[in-house]
Amino acid sequence: MFLRRAKSIQESLTKTRRSFFGRLATSLFGRGDLDEAFWDELEESLILADVGVDVTLEVVGNVRRRAEERAMRKASEVEGILRQELVRILSQNQQPYLPGVRDLSVVLVVGVNGSGKTTSIAKLAHYHVARGDRVLLGAADTFRAAAIDQLRIWADRARVDIVAHQPGADPGAVVFDTIQAARARGANVVIVDTAGRLHTKHNLMAELQKIRNVAAKQVHQAPHEVLLVVDATNGQNAIAQARVFGEAVGVTGVVVAKLDSSAKGGVILAIARELGLPIKFVGTGETLDDLAPFDPEAFVAGLFEPVAEEA
């Protein structure tokens, strides 16, 4: 089944970081003088990384101002303040995942179609199991063909239990049963998979609110995390996703999926900057181990690692 080689998180992340600003690190900072072309190229690199126009202009503006204040002349000198600026944006709103201690934590996972929810849930389940938690999955994507089967296979692999109804069943009822079952079986973490939905579909967003309410009525302060899974290959639309899901169901954190792709996932900077949402995890592959807590320092530091192979 696992035809593909399992990558370690370290390896995946290193690769991601390398490709992230690979070109930037060598050609940009190694270019010598801090001229107009340098700033243009920095702007281009950030936009090509999906950082978006607004945040790019802000970052370049701030970095440039600081560079001028310190009378910097060499491109290599700017690297440090650029790194600081990016870390600042990403760490402004950082919050721990599931802070505090409680008997039962409910994690709701939401996102647009194909963003990587189900795979992220499997990895998240694995993450909890490795920490000694008793995990129960709720298969509340009763809409998409075979979504329940998909989650069931992942549950087997991650060695966790799953509560599922028939396809087409009421997702709220699935959540209700999952929480009941978690209590009965002594599970302490419930992770709910929801159907992918475009944030522009009002009725589906309302359904998500209902799912949220079902959880809230059963467990004090639930859901304790509402994780939005964002595809790293997405561009500026991810901001709209984060905004609308945030307003509808109170997203508490973002999971960036598919960061092992060639995409840079720079839109998370815009999500952090414009919406103040913390980034909590990054997904870097298709095996259970390919999930890591998001670390702004490490992430940005990785952006500037020298790159050998990439053209």
């Binding site: 194909g114 561009g235 792709s261 060639s262 995409a263």
Partner: peptide, 12 residues
């Protein structure tokens, strides 16, 4: 291809 794809669409 997903309509939401960003800058990377080119390389993909």
């Amino acid at each position: 291809a997903d309509a939401m794809t960003g800058q990377e669409a080119v390389r993909v």
